[in-house]
Simulated scan of single mutants.
Amino acid sequence: MDVKNKTVSSKVLRYRYHKLLNAGLDGSYIHRSTGVSEKDICNSSARISYPNYLRFIQLLKLHGYGGLDTEIWEITIHDLVEELGSLPALCVNQPDAGSALNAYIRYRGLIGESDYLSCYQEEDQVVIQFSGETFAQAMPEFYAGTAVANFIILATILRWYIQEKPHHFDIDLVHDPVFPVDKYHTFFGSEVRFNREENYMRFDASLLKCKNKRLNPALMDFLLAQVEDEYDYINAIPAFRNQKQVDKRE
């Protein structure tokens, strides 16, 4: 069966949906991120499209019901591909780290809200900003998980290319430590600053030139087509597209 035509009963997601609400997430945010609405969940006869179901599961795994799971500190590329699917697979099969970063930034909407992440170069540093002050104030615990999760995923992808080359990631976070401070320092290889005005990840721009020694050119077109197909389909869902338009007007 074509995965686009496959559906899942809303009853399968009901318990986990309420777990997200209890963790402090807003129903409209879940809808924007996954295409799954509270109306769908409350309707026992409703069917959830399979891509939306996958996005919902990815949201759960990425944020751990609103907070990071301790296992995220030991995450590997294999884990990312297994948990988040086509996007990390595409990212680790690029010619260099810069191309991998571009792919993640461009298609990040496949695993969560994409409006909050930006990337730019400042002199010899790459700066990745995870913004959204109002969102952070409304749901600080979830926001903390969202920012750190993205930085951990990005660092894991970049290390696929960097390998043994000396490096570190400078991190600023708007929140207090969720875990022991040494967890952050050990993973990112640098001091992590808390209670800052915004979430930032900075690293040496020269790292973007690191080549992929395990590149499989035969898979590049296939993985890109798979990601673009999923991305186009998600953005073509009327409810999801209309919600994004409403958000922009607000």
Score class of each variant (00 low, 15 high):
Thr186Met: 06
Arg214Thr: 13
His185Gly: 03
Ile234Arg: 11
Arg214Met: 11
Arg196Val: 03
Lys183Asp: 15
Phe194Val: 05
Arg202Gly: 01
Glu228Cys: 15
Phe179Gln: 05
Thr186Ala: 14
Arg202Glu: 02
Glu197Leu: 06
Asn199Ala: 08
Lys183Trp: 08
Arg196Lys: 14
Arg214His: 13
Glu198Lys: 14
Ala205His: 05
Asp232Ser: 14
Tyr184Asn: 08
Lys209Tyr: 01
Phe194Lys: 03
Pro217Val: 08
Val181Asn: 04
Asn216Lys: 15
Asp182Thr: 07
Asn195Tyr: 01
Tyr231Pro: 09
Ala225Tyr: 02
Asn212Arg: 02
Lys183Leu: 10
Lys211Tyr: 00
Glu230Pro: 10
Met201Asn: 00
Leu223Ser: 02
Pro177Tyr: 05
Ala225Gln: 10
Lys211Trp: 00
Val178Met: 12
Asp221Ala: 15
Glu198Trp: 00
Ser190Phe: 02
Leu208Val: 06
Val227Arg: 10
Pro180Met: 06
Val178Gln: 12
Asp232Lys: 12
Leu207Pro: 08
Phe222Val: 11
Arg202Val: 00
His185Ser: 06
Leu224Gln: 12
Ile234Asn: 09
Glu230Trp: 08
Ala225Lys: 11
Val181Met: 07
Ile234Asp: 10
Asp204Arg: 01
Glu228Met: 14
Phe222Arg: 12
Leu208Ser: 05
Arg214Ala: 11
Tyr233Thr: 04
Lys183His: 13
Asn216Val: 14
Gly189Met: 08
Arg214Gln: 14
Val178Phe: 05
Leu223Ile: 07
Asn199Glu: 02
Thr186Asn: 15
Gly189His: 06
Glu197Ser: 10
Arg202Cys: 02
Tyr200Pro: 03
Gly189Asp: 06
Phe187Thr: 02
Ser206His: 07
Met201Thr: 01
Leu219Glu: 15
Asn195Arg: 09
Asn199Phe: 02
Lys213Val: 07
Leu215Glu: 08
Met220Glu: 13
Ala218His: 08
Tyr200Ala: 04
Asp232Gln: 15
Ala205Cys: 09
Arg193Lys: 14
Lys211Arg: 12
Leu223Gln: 12
Lys213Ile: 02
Leu215Met: 06
Glu230Gln: 14
Tyr233Cys: 03
Leu215His: 03
Leu207Cys: 07
Arg193Asp: 06
Ala205Val: 11
Ile234Gly: 05
Lys211Val: 09
Lys209Trp: 01
Ala218Thr: 13
Ser206Gly: 09
Glu191Val: 12
Glu228Ser: 15
Leu207Gly: 08
Lys209Gln: 15
Asp182Phe: 00
His185Leu: 07
Ala225Ser: 14
Phe179Pro: 01
Leu208His: 04
Tyr184Trp: 07
Pro217His: 05
Phe179Ile: 00
Pro217Asn: 04
Ala225Pro: 01
Arg193Ala: 10
Leu208Thr: 08
Glu198His: 10
Ile234Lys: 10
Asp221Val: 14
